[in-house]
Design a protein around this nucleic acid. Structure first.
Lengths: 227, 227
DNA sequence: AACATACTATACCAGTCGGTTCAATAATTG
DNA sequence: CAATTATTGAACCGACTGGTATAGTATGTT
C-alpha cells in the first residue's frame, strides 16, 4: 500500500529517466486553477474530484496522476492561493516620508487586503477545514498573518529608532495597529458574506483615517522631536 | 410534501389535542446536547445524523421526529450554543469606579470570552459553514459581535458624557477597543487550534493591560478634567 | 379497555463520494 | 519501428449519507 519507489513521483516529475510521454504541465496548472476557483466557497467536502476534473477539462484519472490525493490537491491549491494573495512587499515606505503618510499608505494596503473578497473566502476556507488545527492552519498563519506582523514590526522598530514614534514593544504595537485596521469589517464580512458586507470606499477611507489617528494619538511622541 | 397541518409540529409540541404518548423532552434535550458536542470540531458535513442519534442514546427516527431536518437540528444546536456563550451582562461597571478600572474589568471579561476554546470552536463552526452567508452567519453576528458592540458603545457614550473619555464617535471607539483586545490571539487560535495557541495567564493580562493603556492614551482627555 | 402517539430496531433506498480498473489512444524517447 | 508513459472515457467498487418504510413495543389519554 505504501510503496514509494520514487518519492514524490506524483508531485514533481523526475527529470531522470524521462522516457515515454511527459506529463502535461498545462493540465496540471488547469487542475490547480480549477481547484483554486472551486474549493473556496464550497469547502473541502463541498466539491468533488469529478467536479474539479470537469472544470479543468481533464479526466479524473489525470487528476490522480498529478496529485496523490484529494487532500494533496487541496493543500497545493491552498498553498498557491496563500502565496498569490499575500505579497511580500506590503511595507515599503518611501524614504523621508512623514510617518503619518507612511502609516496611512500601509493601512490602505492592509485594509484593502483583509477586506477583499478573495482574502475573506481564503480565510473562511482555511478555518472551515478540520485540518486547520494541523498543518493547514499553521501554514496559513505563517504564510499570512505571521509574516505581515513581522514585517510591520520591523517597520515600527525603525520608526521608533528614528524618533518618529514612541514605541517600547514594536511587536505589540504592530498587533495593535493591524488589529485596529481589521476592525469589525473582517468579521462582519466573514459572517454576512464578503459581497453583502462590503463597505463603500469613503467609509473605508474614513475607517483607515480614524485608525491612523488613534494609533498616532497613542504612539506619537508627546515631547516634540527635533526634525 | 409540504403540508403543515399544525405549524412547527416538529419544533414545539402543541399543547392542544395532546392525545397519545407525549414527546419525551429529555430525549430532545439529549439530541441537542449531542449535537452541540459533536457539530463543533467536525462541522455540518463532518458528523452524521446516525452518529448524533447514537451519541444521544436515541434512535435515528426519533431525531427526525423531533427535528424536521439535519439542517434544522444544526440551526437549533448553534442557536443554543450562541445563547449559552454570549452573556447579556458583560458590561456592568460599578458606579463611581475609575475609568481605567472599569475598562480593565470589561477588557478581562471580553478577552476571556474571545480567547475561550468554546468561543473559538463556535466561531469556526459558524464561519466554516457555507450557510454562513445566509441566515446562520447573520444570526451569529447579531447574537454575538453586534450585541456586544452596541452594549459597549453605550458604555463609552456614557463615559464620554461624564468627561472620563474624549470620544467623538462612540461606535468607532468601541470597535477600536474590542478589536485591540481580540488582537492576534483570536486569529492564531482559529488557525493553530484553541488549545495549541492558548496563552498563559500572565501574558494575557499583560496583553489586556497594554490594550487598556493604548486606548487610554488615545482617548483620555488631554486637558485635565475636574473631579 | 380502546386508541393514539412515541420510540426502537432493522432494513432499505437512492444518491454521492473517493479511488481504482480496464481498454484504447496519444505523445514522446530510443 | 518498439517501448514507455500520459491521458481518456467509462464502468466499477465499497463505503457512507440523508432520509424513509415497516413492524413491533412502550407510554400516554380518554
Amino acid at each position: 500500500m505504501s510503496h514509494h519507489h520514487c518519492p514524490a513521483a506524483t508531485d514533481i516529475q523526475t527529470p531522470l529517466a524521462a522516457s515515454g510521454r511527459p506529463k502535461d504541465l498545462e493540465k496540471r496548472a488547469a487542475i490547480l486553477t480549477a481547484a483554486k476557483q472551486l474549493f473556496p466557497g464550497h469547502g473541502f467536502d463541498g466539491i468533488s474530484v469529478d467536479a474539479i476534473a470537469q472544470a479543468a477539462g481533464v479526466s479524473k484519472l489525470t487528476v490522480y496522476s498529478h496529485f496523490q490525493d484529494k487532500e494533496a490537491l487541496f493543500m497545493h491549491a491552498i498553498g498557491e492561493l496563500c502565496q498569490e494573495l499575500l505579497p511580500d512587499h506590503l511595507f515599503v515606505p518611501e524614504a523621508g516620508e512623514p510617518i503619518e503618510d507612511a502609516l496611512r499608505a500601509l493601512a490602505d494596503s492592509f485594509f484593502a487586503l483583509v477586506a477583499s473578497p478573495a482574502a475573506i473566502s481564503l480565510q473562511r476556507l482555511v478555518l472551515a477545514d478540520v485540518r486547520a488545527e494541523g498543518r493547514l492552519g499553521r501554514m496559513f498563519w505563517r504564510a499570512g498573518p505571521a509574516r505581515i506582523l513581522a514585517s510591520f514590526e520591523g517597520f515600527l522598530g525603525r520608526a521608533a529608532a528614528a524618533g518618529d514614534l514612541e514605541i517600547i514593544d514594536p511587536a505589540q504595537a504592530a498587533i495593535h495597529f493591524l488589529s485596529l485596521l481589521k476592525g469589525a469589517v473582517n468579521l462582519r464580512m466573514l459572517c454576512c458574506g464578503a459581497r453583502a458586507a462590503e463597505i463603500p470606499a469613503d467609509e473605508a477611507s474614513a475607517h483607515v483615517a480614524g485608525v491612523v489617528d488613534v494609533f498616532l494619538r497613542a504612539y506619537q511622541p508627546r515631547t516634540p522631536q527635533a526634525g
